[in-house]
Amino acid sequence: MDSVRKNKLAIFLFIFPAALLFTAIIILPIFMSSYYSLLKWDGINKGVFIGLKNYMDLFTSKSVGFPKTIGNALILAVLSVFIQLPISLGLALLLSKGVKGERFFVSVFFIPVLISTVVIGQLWMKIYNPDYGIVNVALRAMGLDHLAKPWLGNQKTALLSVFIPILWQYVGYHMLLMYAGIKSISPEFREAAKIDGATEWQIARHIIIPILKPVIKISVIFAVTGSLKAFDLIYVLTNGGPAHASEVPSTLMVSMIFDRNLYGLGSAIAIFIIFLCFFFAITIQKFFKAEVD
């Protein structure tokens, strides 16, 4: 095996196909987008080179309103890390202990990840409907009529109403990651701790979670970058409205490119999303490394 690893030709031959695909599908488009982001271009006719004006517009133009979308994406990231992941971790800990019907529950929590997002969007649209939606119907049935509101049509509630299904959908995904991680921890640790008289809480806190750290790190990175890229459910539920209340960078990008023919500005947003994702992925890596040291 070592001889293969030392053979430069072999290394090249094995890596080449994947590297070629990766470059063509991911690296090249990034470079092309960064070039487009320097143009004033409608996507059809010839573009005009305008330097960094698109990037300046992102932060100065009131009609684009980009800073607010970054704010919204960060709110989603914070909610993901501090609400969604703890729930996933709790479920994973609970299920991995060997509850009755363990496999059944794992599948149930994972189902939302498997269902098409558009279907989930339609489902939640019905849940939030001001007239017959289950949320308002339940509130009215409890005599809380004053709390019933058009959830997706109200600027104050739209953002949170859109985030709840997003958080809900991916709880199962992170749970599965963590569940698999916990299952791979040797049961001897748990037994040893039990013999020493540790409670369930102490086992989880001092043994399982520290060993699970690499998995948690991956989950945090996925949750944060996923929040920055969030698009589909928001597009279906509110399309960023009302009046940009639930706009995130990717919905803004689509509306700039396809509704306003501002291909250059849209590309600038895309580049910015990529930059933010890298930045956070690296920062989180560093943070976890510092923890270990």
Binding site: D42, S63, Q155, G241, P242, A243, H244, S255, M256, D259, R260, N261, L262
Partner: peptide
């Protein structure tokens, strides 16, 4: 398209 997009976005702001 560029002006039309802005018109519709502003209308929503006016409506709200």
């Amino acid at each position: 398209a560029e002006d039309a997009g802005e018109y519709l976005a502003l209308l929503q702001e006016l409506y709200m």
